[in-house]
Design a binder for these strands. Structure first.
Length: 189
DNA sequence: TGCCCGATTAACT
DNA sequence: GTTAATCGGGCAA
């Protein structure tokens, strides 16, 4: 049985935590899969929500590591982040894609599609598949209904520029599982 | 108060 | 390839 991720896992910089999440498992209420794509947002990064300081929306980012920060994207979708160290600095990792492994039929019903590649390949898609919304903002990642498990096998992690941002566009802070068919977009080789 | 725009997605052409 | 959907945050006035 893989090791559970506890809050200590997140007491590191996003630039260490983000690549370590590739291949790890995320489940919410038993539904989820293997994380194959994430992005790091450091508090010194102009693209981070926390860059301009604390607001009502991003308050969780300014709290302790090991909690979920969920925000509304484009007024339509939800996006899930894991808050990291150092506490109070407001850095987090955006979870962008899963390889679905648990609760596939539930995901298909919620998403309205059957292709497994379309269930969790994108930050908004995976939140719909796992039914994560603003209600989960501030939830602890090491307590139910969240379940996180460390990867149990060696993986090859690739890095590249982040997606959908207009600031710090060239920083290679998007991480993915090499060769995965479940990425939201391929990595340039 | 008003305006612009975004860590997206699906449905177009 | 382009664009509508949809709404709160952030900032100018």
């Amino acid at each position: 049985m893989p090791k559970r991720l506890t809050k200590s896992f997140f007491r590191r910089s996003v630039h260490e935590v983000a690549p370590d999440l590739i291949g790890a498992t995320l489940r919410f209420d038993g539904v989820g899969g293997r994380m194959v794509e994430v992005e790091a947002y450091h508090h010194t990064d102009p693209a981070a929500h926390s860059f301009r300081g604390q607001t009502e929306r991003n308050a969780v980012m300014f709290g302790p590591p090991g909690y979920a920060y969920v925000y509304r994207s484009y007024g339509i979708h939800w996006c899930l982040n894991f808050v990291c160290e150092p506490e109070g600095s407001a850095s987090a990792v955006l979870i962008r894609a899963l390889e679905p492994t648990a609760g596939l039929s539930t995901m298909r019903r919620r998403r309205g599609v059957t292709d497994p590649r379309l269930l969790c390949s994108g930050p908004g898609r995976l939140c719909e598949a796992l039914r994560i919304s603003h209600r989960q903002n501030g939830f602890a990642l090491d307590e139910p209904p969240f379940e996180l498990f460390a990867r149990s096998d060696a993986v090859e992690v690739v890095a590249g520029p982040r997606i959908g941002i207009t600031k710090a566009v060239n920083e290679p802070w998007r991480y993915g599982l090499k060769g995965s068919r479940f990425l939201s977009k391929p990595f340039k080789r």
